[in-house]
Design a protein around this nucleic acid. Structure first.
Lengths: 204, 204
DNA sequence: CATTTTCCTGCATGGTCATTCAAGATAATG
DNA sequence: CATTATCTTGAATGACCATGCAGGAAAATG
């Protein structure tokens, strides 16, 4: 694996980025199992050996891809992770995020969905990664609903944890449907409808 | 491929069923790409050659698996496909279906989700299969909401097609979250909460 | 009982897979 | 310029993949 002792060269950095980019695209389309290192290397203008040299193994590349995907998602977020938005702010953000995904980030969404479904079964490192990421999102949402119930913004007779799971389920499912059939499923419209309804339900 | 001319023997029928059963289990866990015919054959107590003999190819087996999965789902449905249930009846059925899945049908749910996500990209026969199946479900739901709006059961200022996509998205996402993390996601509770809220929203 | 059909196996084939290794090319360093 | 480290390649390896084929076992049919 490169970069352990000495200096990295900018040529190597560029190659690594090209490889990760290629891997993101191919993993999103065909999954990890369905994509060979040869195909990734070729798309990045290199050989399988070079790929292994840089990442140690295919799993190493997968790890790098996930980290890069997280980096991009966070960069786009542009919100301090410890912020405490109101319900309306959060809902608005979810709708805007769906808009942005539909317009320009199909790849990242497909990567997330494909790899999640590829790792439903426990046992792999990737399963833990995606499971914990889901838990973190639901915890975030639970806190949001708990705050809203406490300060009177929302009715208090609904279980915040169940609500959180419901919202997470809707978002995940909407993305899945849209990826599968983008001509017939309008990701933004569905989000707008759902969150408008949810806001009304919580206000009542 | 067997069964083209003469009579099928009961031994062959049993073997085929064993193979389809094994395939359903393994496909659900590892996807089609991640499962070799050797593993399926072994679990069914046979050899890869026997499998190919019965189904012609791996794709033939996949087709048989999908048909069997459909058969099981329909059998469980126990509802004439041209029925016109009321909103409450339909919602109740979705909740009961989730209950049943959570209790005893994890395998079929995992098969559906895994194969759907494995075929997000257009081009394959399986992609078309899952895309059209999604369209059919949404069309069904759209008709349901249209009827309810027409006879005054539900408010009429919401787009039935968007509502249908929303419901389909929720159901799909709830199953995905539950499959990924069954210890923390209560499929039934989430369904109950969502459909209770949806019923309230439509009544208002 | 003989013939035909279905069912199944063992073996072989060509393909793809991830990974290793030795050696060459390129860049940085003193 | 020489040395050293980084980067890259080409060939080779062994594992696994789906499938084909030839022949044999089992069952049905007359």
């Amino acid at each position: 694996m490169a970069g352990v002792k000495g200096q990295v060269q900018k040529r190597g950095v560029a190659r690594r980025r090209a490889m990760v980019d290629a891997a993101i695209k191919l993993f999103a389309q065909q999954g990890v199992r369905g994509t060979g290192v040869a195909a990734i290397a070729e798309r990045a203008g290199a050989t399988p050996s070079a790929l292994i040299h840089h990442f140690g193994s295919k799993d190493g590349l997968v790890q790098a891809v996930l980290e890069e995907a997280d980096r991009r998602a966070l960069e786009r977020l542009a919100v301090p992770p410890d912020a405490e938005p109101t319900l309306d702010q959060a809902f608005d953000w979810f709708v805007r995020d769906a808009e942005h995904t539909a317009a320009a980030e199909r790849e990242l969404a497909a990567l997330h969905t494909t790899l999640t479904a590829e790792n439903l079964e426990p046992g792999s490192a990737l399963h833990t990664w995606f499971r914990d990421r889901g838990r973190a999102l639901r915890a975030h949402l639970t806190a949001l609903f708990t705050r809203a119930a406490a300060d009177g913004t929302a009715r208090a007779d609904l279980d915040p944890a169940v609500l959180a799971a419901e919202v997470a389920a809707f978002i995940e499912g909407a993305h899945l449907l849209w990826l599968l059939d983008p001509d017939e499923v309008d990701l933004t419209a569905v989000h707008r409808g759902y969150f408008a309804g949810l806001a009304a339900r919580l206000r009542t």
